[in-house]
Nucleic acid binder design. Structure first.
Lengths: 281, 281
DNA sequence: CAGGGTCGATACCTCACGGGTATCGGTCTC
DNA sequence: GAGACCGATACCCGTGAGGTATCGACCCTG
């Protein structure tokens, strides 16, 4: 199978519409139809069921969608890591660390300082990402290590070491009825009359629903201070809050574990050293 | 990047010879040369240094070789898993378990029995592999779970649960001077005058060196009984030994951990259930 | 040092295949 | 029943992957 075929299939499987998929791929619809049916012939199984009004995935198609995404990530990672290895072998060794913008800030600062003090430390480029974006950078080879947060981020297929586990706080507008409480329980949050924010999906688009569309933490905090939404965040986020929002501990919220993650095939000494440094913090 | 280009590069990087690589790929040498230099142009970096007498990898080339192997495995896995999903959704659900031929036999038998007794258990096809071959089956989607042995097998990029940890015994020809000992230390083995066996590499070929070429455990045991070689094996292997070889415990040998492993992206309920069953043993 | 052998690069040709346009056939809506 | 929508089919074209022949650099060997 060629990656072109996988890209084509993923586009159709995600759009569930040949016309839109073709448009997204920048080709015409007929060659796309042909490519998919050729793929089906080669695999010896239908991947999509087409009625002229709708397209749906078969069981085999769902498997291929999942596997093809992983395979395409691996191919792109091969390309990116090779590119980066080329520039690294020319100039100063550099590793890219991906972190969620606005999260784990203090930990990140400490880590960068501690690592920079190590002998033979590489230069660290910090890539601040929208939530959920760090894994993509890792999996596609544009980053070497990432700071992630279980259970929010998907850690499948990554090597991981735990750094800290924290309880969560709910971040509310200042005037909100619950904002006066010293502590809350998850059940209390059900009564909140505000919609939860909507984050962009991996395709950069927003799901339908109530709640404001949100891209980063600055936006989010502003929306909270305007009384438009609320949010559950790790305790350590408190130190970054503006004074026009209120944080209240939620006793029985799921704990959040900040982890350092890297691709399992990584052979970089620099990454290994940075991880060791992180574990000593 | 297309998988064709990756396959071409891997062939050249492994052979370090354009002519042989082309032959292995079933194409002529000129298109191969062209494809590689086109790849280099696109990546913006040389991958190989050619002097008309030898071809060597650059640093970037070494990275690409490593990454390309992983990517090609992922692509093949996508194909195989889709194929298998197609037949599974037609007939009875089946999972493929890969295990080293001749190793962990009792554990495997117990596992298969215990799993078969579970409600809703899938049919389990057992693939008995040459040593080191199980991972390939897992990574290329031809198997769903495998029984592996740390530290012998490479577990990078696989999800793993430990099953048992054992000490090792050395398996010797019956008449060997050390075979009368009740127990040994690693230092004692240095004095053994026999060469260690050679196993085939991932390309199916044998490295040069002394020691007999060996494909499976039957062969190995026969060669030991003939006084041609010796071998270090997990304790549990004793129950499988012929009576014309001798096993002696080695007190300070590295312990071997038998693990159950599966691809990190696996979503199969059946695999999860089999792993749970294995952990209860 | 001439001559032959080895090996990757280059030149040039061919054709298969990926991609385009036009159109068909089936289905839903009004 | 007309029209819109959508995937499949028919047919054409150009790119580019792959082939053969050959070159040029390098290493032997007598």
């Amino acid at each position: 199978m060629e990656t072109r075929e996988l890209r084509y299939f993923v586009a159709v499987a995600e759009e569930l519409h040949f016309g839109r998929a073709a448009e997204r791929l920048g080709i015409a619809q007929p060659p796309l139809s042909r490519a998919i049916s050729q793929l089906e012939r080669r695999l010896g199984t239908p991947l999509l069921t087409r009625s002229s009004r709708s397209v749906t995935l078969t069981a085999a198609g769902a498997v291929l969608l999942h596997e093809a995404r992983a395979a395409l990530d691996a191919v792109e990672a091969a390309e990116q890591r090779t590119r980066r290895a080329a520039v690294a072998s020319a100039g100063r060794p550099t590793i890219v660390l991906a972190s969620k913008a606005g999260a784990s800030n203090e930990l990140l600062a400490k880590l960068l300082d501690a690592y920079a003090a190590e002998p033979g430390a590489a230069h660290v480029d910090v890539a601040l990402c929208a939530p959920g974006e760090q894994q993509r950078l890792l999996r596609t080879g544009r980053a070497d290590v990432a700071i992630l947060h279980a259970p929010y981020d998907d850690l499948t297929g990554l090597d991981v070491e735990d750094l800290v586990t924290e309880t969560q706080v709910v971040i509310l507008p200042p005037g909100h009825p619950l904002s006066a409480s010293r502590e809350l329980r998850m059940a209390d949050l059900d009564g909140i009359d505000l919609p939860v924010p909507r984050w962009p999906g991996r395709d950069g688009r927003y799901a339908d629903g109530p709640g404001p569309e949100v891209r980063d933490h600055t936006q989010l905090l502003q929306l909270i201070s305007l009384g438009r939404t609320y949010f559950l965040a790790p305790e350590s986020a408190r130190s970054q809050l503006r004074d026009d929002v209120v944080a209240v501990p939620v006793l029985d919220a799921r704990t959040v574990t900040t982890v350092v993650a890297w691709p399992p095939h990584s052979r970089s000494q620099h990454v290994a050293q940075l991880v060791r440094t992180a574990l000593r913090l």
